[in-house]
């Protein structure tokens, strides 16, 4: 573990491992909500892990749809099982590489737990620890004080001309360079491409090591704010209007009204249509009782 990860989530995997160990001993069947950044949800049956989801890692559906495999005549049952397992490990990696602030279990009856093989928590923890350690041994991680790319925290920016040097190489590296716009993190890119978070983080860290991308420190780049000089008088006007109104719940009638043909461009059309059109609306409204007072 490196300084940056320690600062953000000291021992996230340790916290996860402790909780999973307890649930394994208790042979818990139910769901575990892991709070933190990005956090996630684990599905357990008799202490074994059946499923894992995290906002930090693409789920099965995203992996299939975004990578295009879901639309190419489907995938085999064996491949699907394999992918399900990879998604599960990837979600646990996402939780462990971030911050874990707590785990809350909710028991359900065994019958309502999803079917499928369970994974031993110890195997999950061991593999996740191996991944975290492997990440820190990559060339891109060793040379940098914070270590590997923090996949859910650090926006990535492709160095100008870097895309050209990778253009001839297929695969994740080129996709990362194309999507690293200074706003997207490795996690965001994993979702866009339908690749795993771990794979994307490894690739991103390697690109970092080769100087093709840079990791933008949190709060580094913002897109330009809106037209401030326009916004200020507008807000003042809206505030005045809000203040002048008698107190009470916000009513739909207070919304700005758009009058047909107000711009003048469609005046002729509006004159011809408005009378007949509005009658129609009122007639229909009357039928379903919308204009019925009280």
């Amino acid at each position: 573990m490196t300084a940056a990860h320690d600062a953000y989530g000291p021992g996230a995997l340790d916290a996860l491992a402790r909780a999973l160990g307890t649930y394994e001993r208790d042979r818990l069947t139910g769901t575990v909500r892991v709070s933190g950044r990005p956090g996630g949800v684990l599905g357990l049956r008799r202490g074994l892990v059946l499923s894992a989801r995290s906002p930090g890692a693409p789920d099965l559906e995203t992996r299939l749809l975004r990578s295009g495999r879901g639309t190419q005549g489907g995938i085999g049952a064996a491949e699907l099982r394999m992918l399900h397992m990879r998604v599960l490990y990837d979600a646990v990696f996402a939780m462990a590489v971030g911050q874990v602030t707590g785990c809350a279990a909710e028991r359900v009856r065994a019958a309502s737990a999803p079917p499928g093989p369970g994974h031993f928590p110890s195997a999950l923890v061991r593999e996740t620890a191996r991944r975290l350690a492997a990440l820190e041994r990559l060339p891109g991680a060793l040379e940098r004080l914070p270590g590997a790319v923090a996949p859910c925290r650090e926006p990535l920016l492709a160095v100008p001309m870097a895309a050209g040097s990778e253009a001839s190489r297929p695969g994740a590296g080129r996709e990362i360079l194309a999507l690293a716009d200074g706003r997207r993190t490795a996690r965001d890119i994993a979702f866009r491409t339908g690749r795993g978070l771990y794979t994307t983080t490894v690739e991103a860290t390697l690109l970092l090591g080769r100087g093709l991308i840079i990791a933008v420190p949190p709060g580094g780049i913002t897109s330009g704010p809106g037209p401030a000089d326009l916004a200020e008088p507008l807000l003042r006007r809206l505030r005045d209007r809000a203040g002048a109104r008698p107190p009470g719940p916000a009513a739909a009638g207070d919304l700005p009204r758009r009058v047909p043909g107000a711009s003048g461009r469609t005046r002729k059309l509006a004159e011809e249509n408005s009378a007949a059109g509005r009658q129609g609306i009122y007639r229909r409204a009357g039928r379903i009782g919308l204009d019925d007072p009280g």
Partner: peptide
């Protein structure tokens, strides 16, 4: 603003 004028954006 409620009438649709942009005040600030953090968009791609």
């Amino acid at each position: 603003a409620v009438d649709g004028l942009l005040i600030a954006a953090d968009t791609g």
